[in-house]
Amino acid sequence: MTEILRYTAFSADPEGGNPAGVVLDASGLDEAGMLAVAAGLGYSETAFLTAPPAGLGAPEGRGFTVRYFSPKAEVPFCGHATVATAVALAERIGPGELVFATPAGTVPVSVTATGTDGDGTDGGGGLRATLTSVEPYVEEVGADDLAEALAALGWPEADLDPELAPRIAYAGARHLVLGAATRARLADLAYDFARLEALMRRLDLTTLQLVYRAGRDVFHVRDPFPVGGVVEDPATGAAAAAFGAYARELRLVPADAVLTLHQGEDMGRPGVLTVELRAGDPRVRVGGAGARIV
């Protein structure tokens, strides 16, 4: 029988963050079986692990092939399920370096114990995982596509933040980034599910990354996810990585920067995502806590 674990990502509290399914041994499942497990669980994504490909370059016993399924379809990459999986593995094989071969590319993940004893061992705290994205890109969004997105959201153009220009950003999956002019605009999310899903499928988007800038390096975000069969994703690591690339491309932050993203508050599942940018490295690092859901 397939063992399905349940973990939350981007929160040390099982009631916060974004829950994900984790199947540490999916060798007995085909694609239809993985989709059935994900649909039955009902979380926005479930991660399925099998043996690593040859030449992955991971430490012995710490490399894996990972596939991600929403209740409706496979997705190329999922940040919160990556964090959840890394925490689940670290509980079994210890903190340290992991390497995941994903459909989007190779994703290194580092797991550390919080509240450590100074030598990297757990001193009674939890676990924190930080993934390094594949190389990102940012591109323009067409005027007609933007107008359709705003119509599906029910947002007048005047509700956009002029300092946060609409863009499509990628760091393993594609996301349309839209800036809200006020926190109240971000909090009031009621959209046309079918209309937004149709647009997202046409543009090959995984979520919309709706953003309110609360400070120089602090943001509140929300992620509609109709293509995955859920109204909203509570904490979205792939979108956070894409947003990091977006913030760098638009020069919203310095070349070396650490951003804090708050997500899930409006859903009653608060989570915190840390986004790190390093000068000279195009990749984006996204980290957060994780915890098992009993």
Rank of each mutant, 00 (worst) to 15 (best):
P166D: 15
G94Y: 15
P162D: 14
V99E: 04
V83S: 07
R67E: 02
H80C: 08
K72Y: 12
A54T: 11
L176K: 13
A171V: 05
Y137I: 03
F69Y: 14
A129R: 08
A101C: 04
P76H: 12
F69T: 06
E140H: 15
P52R: 05
S70W: 02
I168F: 12
E74N: 14
T112L: 12
P71S: 14
Y43C: 01
V107S: 05
T112M: 06
G96Q: 13
A101S: 15
T114W: 11
T121K: 14
R67F: 00
A143H: 09
A104I: 00
R167Y: 07
D159R: 11
L146N: 09
T102P: 13
G123S: 02
A84S: 14
R167T: 14
T85R: 14
A51P: 06
A151T: 14
L127Y: 09
R62E: 13
T112D: 13
T130G: 11
A173P: 08
F100R: 01
E139L: 04
G123C: 02
R128D: 08
D159M: 10
L146S: 07
F48A: 03
L98D: 12
E135T: 13
Y68N: 13
A151Q: 15
D117L: 15
G63P: 06
A147L: 01
A152P: 08
D122R: 13
E74T: 05
G94C: 11
H80T: 12
E140P: 10
P103T: 05
T132F: 00
E148P: 00
T121I: 06
G115L: 08
V138I: 08
G55S: 06
A58Y: 13
Y68H: 10
A104W: 00
G105Y: 08
G115W: 09
E135Y: 04
